[in-house]
Amino acid sequence: MSLPKFSYLAPDTLEEACRLLAAHQGKIKIKAGGTDLLVRMSARAFKPDYVLALGKVAGLDHITFDPRTGLRLGAMAKLADVVDHPAVREHYPMLARAAKATATVQIRNMGTVMGNICNASPSADNIPTLMVREASVIALAATGEREIPLAEFFLGPGKTALQPTEIATEIRVPVPEAGSGVSYQKISPRSKVDIAAVNVAAFLLLDGERRCRQARLCLGAVGPTPLRAPRTEDFLVGKELRPEVLEEAGELAAGEATPISDVRASKEYRRLMVAILTKRALVEAHNQALHH
């Protein structure tokens, strides 16, 4: 179906973008890569009067790494560029894995990590790894800028903590701690190219005796937003990843998930997969941590 009619706004500066956003609150959608927005518009799920495109704003597609401050991804940084970026591959291999697991070659050439986050789909590939890395989003409005931890960013399917006047300009990811490791696990049983039926990211920081000093988990596609699993995380702290610990962690995580049934999987299957993927993610994160 053709796209519905809209007015197209393509400011050169973020200041102008913020002004336009504020002026057309409630009737405007922000476009980064557009790969999700335009699909939803053509299905008439969204009918904005205005589309605010960020493509002409200079300097929004940066990917930079600083060993003291960490990784910064501009709002217009494309998925394909994140996949291929040497610093991402070296310091955040699971971010690259998640970006590469997103959709198809063409979509990765067009779409952005920020877009994937701001759509706030519970199954988004790029959220879990960023979440367990305690990333944050910079939100800019005419009145100023604030930093929103990803853990507080998602309010529901398609809903974020961004105010109607705010533009998400940058993702900030802290420097990986020595002795930490991350894993991203995804199951889409129908095809190698599919939205996740369940995805799980795990972060582990080990102490000198290979016990978990910190543990973070993010469970995707099993709740209205990607979920942290605080009870499982607490359980893991101070423990060695013995088989029985893994088993229990998997079961705990499954208990923290609140899945529903849809075209991709039933809630029962999803819950079971949370347990399986959690175990697999913990094992891999553990291995990563040992080698980091």
């Binding site: 699909v39 495109a53 070659v105 050439n109």
Partner: peptide, 13 residues
């Protein structure tokens, strides 16, 4: 030089 879906690309851009 990069492959894109022309159905999801606005000509105006």
């Amino acid at each position: 030089g990069k492959s894109v879906s022309s159905c999801l690309t606005l000509a105006i851009e």
